[in-house]
Design a protein around this nucleic acid. Structure first.
Lengths: 212, 212
DNA sequence: ACAATAAGCGAATGGCTTTCACTAAAGAAG
DNA sequence: CTTCTTTAGTGAAAGCCATTCGCTTATTGT
């Protein structure tokens, strides 16, 4: 009987080198550190060849969905079995924002595909439950949750696009006088965008829900 | 003197085949029709070779910014020299939404880079002016505009992610009871997401601005 | 008239995702 | 325990993509 070289990488390994969970976690890490996902580089991180992924996953999109799952699993569900609608809105928004600001580069990719990871679905299921306990009419729960979710994503991305979402050259300052002045005003008198959005969403959602 | 073959594509052409404006327009068209941007295919559309773009543009990112410009130039500025804050919010939100729903595939790419196209900057400059005419404190204009912008993007993307942002298998329906029930509730009692968001933003922004 | 610049092209580079035939171990069946 | 099937790895290759560079020809400026 031959003892194969210990460094041979051929054939099935004695102990598994990959799992869907490990792939999701590594992908999330990679997004945090490199702000993008490349399958060859992910393979390097995991000490594996790129083609190996396709035994666990159908393709890149699924890896991104696993990263979403890893993000949810890392973020604890806020304690809030019940509460006022105001509390519920602020807690959910804050929970989303905390998760999203960790990985801004992932957000555009998450936006373009539906949520299918079980851990993520379970988290949203809990959010829905809390909304309903706070007295939201059922047909408004999904629209309200969508509003919170995209606001959290938008704000987290804005925070990434450095300094400002609008980039004006020095020479062009006179060309866009109002925009330039407004940028200066908020620079001189900074506004916490997340707190502002939380106020806007809380007041707005409560008004829209009570009007029903 | 030689008369070169009319079909020769060598050397500088007698009349220009490309321009930044034409590139932006074609890129926007491509996003609408193919939901993605590929430089080789864009070159095909314009009857040109891919390397030619780099005489007009520094790279892919700049082409995307030109597409943003083309999108703004195609969308008319709403007539509204002045108005109540409620009108202003709804008009701006509606204008953004109209533009964004035309090209959902472009939105994730726009999110990741600052606005630098002159036509877009001018449009935002006008939005700022209208906000100020409606009495918004200057330091809140930018946060308010950011909120409208990301809400419009989020809603346009949600509308793209077909049917629902949450995809639940038939077998899993019992695993996510609240989410599933809420999806059913909104399916049975449909809610216009854009109108809902407009209500939320109008009420919320006015509250946040008046509290100041 | 002529030099400098500008706008095209062709070919090549290096990156990416995905597929497929192959190998060796694990697990199931008798 | 042997044998068969399934599984989790590898390696090589195909077919995309964005970008660069040297070449050619026209336009522009002096």
């Amino acid at each position: 009987m031959q003892t194969p070289s210990k460094t041979s990488q051929l054939g099935r390994p004695r102990t598994p080198r990959l799992s869907r969970k490990a792939i999701g976690r590594a992908a999330l890490e990679m997004f945090e550190e490199e702000e993008s996902l490349s399958i060859p580089r992910l393979a390097e991180r995991l000490g594996v060849r790129q083609s190996s992924f396709y035994k666990h996953v159908t393709g890149r999109q699924e890896i991104i969905e696993l990263a979403r799952g890893a993000l949810v699993e890392r973020t604890p569900m806020p304690e809030l079995p019940s509460g006022s609608l105001d509390d519920v809105i602020r807690q959910i928004f804050d929970s989303l924002r905390k998760a999203y600001t960790l990985v801004p580069a992932l957000l555009p990719l998450l936006l373009t595909q539906p949520v299918s990871h079980p851990a993520a679905l379970e988290r949203y299921d809990q959010f829905v439950e809390v909304f309903e306990l706070a007295g939201t009419p059922s047909h408004l729960v999904i629209p309200a949750l969508e509003a919170l979710d995209s606001a959290a994503i938008g704000a987290s991305l804005d925070a990434m696009t450095m300094e400002s979402a609008w980039s004006i050259n020095e020479e062009e300052q006179g060309t866009y006088p109002h925009l330039f002045a407004a940028k200066k005003a908020v620079a001189d008198h900074p506004v916490d965008r997340f707190a502002f959005l939380a106020d806007v969403l809380s007041a707005g959602l409560r008004a829209a829900i009570d009007d029903d």
